[in-house]
């Protein structure tokens, strides 16, 4: 099945997307992630102000059957969280790249952005799975 992979975003092998806007990075899960998980029924996000290291767990998404950790792709502090998600976790299935953004991080080390995948790289990664 073909998955939606917007070209203006960067990706991780944990099936998360990032949108980079100066030193603010918005993070969510990809269309592939939401469709693999199935109905998402629970989202847990961190508190604003939390400092995260790259690859550290910042929250969880749960489908009816499974629990999956969310990993911060970059280091920095959480400046905003999507308050709609805990009440409407189904947004993750409906709008993974828009309404279901999860957190915004103020980046502390911009060199970490180099390790993110382009849309093309992510698509290649998916077809290698």
């Amino acid at each position: 099945m073909a998955h939606n992979i917007p070209t203006d975003l960067k990706y991780t092998k944990d099936h998360e997307w990032t949108k980079i806007d100066g030193n603010i990075v918005t993070i969510g899960i990809t269309d592939f992630a939401q469709s693999s998980l199935g109905d998402i029924v629970f989202v847990e996000l961190p508190e604003i102000g939390k400092n995260l290291k790259a690859h550290e767990t910042f929250g969880v998404v749960e489908s009816i059957k499974s629990v999956s950790d969310l990993f911060s792709p970059v280091s920095g502090s959480v400046v905003e969280i999507n308050n709609d998600l805990p009440a409407s976790p189904e947004l993750c299935n409906a709008e993974p790249y828009s309404g279901a953004w999860m957190i915004k991080i103020k980046l502390s080390d911009s060199s970490e952005l180099n390790s993110l995948l382009s849309a093309n790289d992510y698509e290649n990664f998916l077809s290698s799975l």
Partner: peptide, 8 residues
């Protein structure tokens, strides 16, 4: 089969 369309 684990699911077809959606568990819900």
């Amino acid at each position: 089969p684990l699911q077809y369309t959606s568990v819900k």
